[in-house]
């Protein structure tokens, strides 16, 4: 079942056409590895889907509601989460970071604390709660950022090279969390390098090249 789809999506930087995507549909319960060379527009595509960047042209549909980018609707921000390659943690505390999106949604305190505690346990962050976020390692920041996204139960999860720049152990921990995150209700797009494709169950590949996108079925190594 298609959850989020876009059509006629065009993005340029100045004179240079970055990509033009005729159609892209993301289904619940599916994960997509978004591959492509550096500069092909992987991050930009994710940022457009999340409403952080704007395309020149394009239309979108979420479930059965149409949407556009001027402005990107607030209700859709509550369904779609984008996590930076190097996540930014607010200069508050680990718990405040995880609770941020719940506060933005007006979740009352008792419920908020319950869900934050569940997220802390999920990402195994108990021993980091008193550490200032800026003092955390890259892998720890990535886990806090994943917990901060997970706690919101997003339907569409957009991860930008979540394991880039991580050491082997952090990479394994992050991958384990990403696997658990991608449940049957969620459509997940994970940008990654061709040589570094993250393997998940029900994984499909989206390859961004030559200004367009190719959708492959499972194990299409020909790309």
């Amino acid at each position: 079942m298609t959850l989020l789809s876009v059509a006629g999506l065009e993005k340029s930087f100045g004179e240079r056409r970055l990509f033009a995507i005729d159609e892209l549909a993301l289904a619940a319960g599916e994960s997509y590895a978004l591959t492509g060379e550096n500069g092909a527009g992987k991050s930009t595509l994710l940022r457009i889907l999340a409403g952080i960047d704007q395309p020149e042209r394009g239309s979108g549909q979420y479930a059965d509601r149409a949407f556009g980018w001027q402005p990107y609707p607030d209700w859709l921000r509550h369904e779609v989460i984008y996590v930076h390659q190097q996540p930014y943690l607010f200069h508050t505390g680990v718990l405040d970071n995880i609770a941020y999106g719940l506060r933005a949604r007006g979740i009352e305190r008792a419920e908020r604390e319950r869900r934050v505690a569940a997220a802390v346990a999920w990402a195994r962050l108990e021993h980091l709660l008193d550490t200032p976020p800026q003092k955390l390692s890259g892998g720890e920041k990535q886990r806090v950022a994943l917990a901060r996204a997970w706690v919101l139960k997003p339907r569409v999860l957009l991860l930008d090279e979540p394991t880039a720049n991580l050491d082997a152990e952090s990479r394994q921990q992050t991958l384990a969390l990403v696997r658990e995150f991608c449940g049957p209700r969620t459509a997940a797009v994970i940008a990654c390098h061709d040589r570094d494709v993250i393997e998940l169950p029900h994984m499909r590949r989206l390859h961004l090249a030559g200004g367009g996108i190719e959708v492959c079925m499972e194990n299409c190594n020909a790309v």
């Binding site: 409403g51 984008y82 930076h84 949604r105």
Partner: peptide
Amino acid sequence: ADPRARETALALGASGPRVAWTMLVE
């Protein structure tokens, strides 16, 4: 300020006033 701060607030569903407050706190 780090541009990712604003993007993160937006991505987590903050509305305009909350984004502003978050940036000032940062």
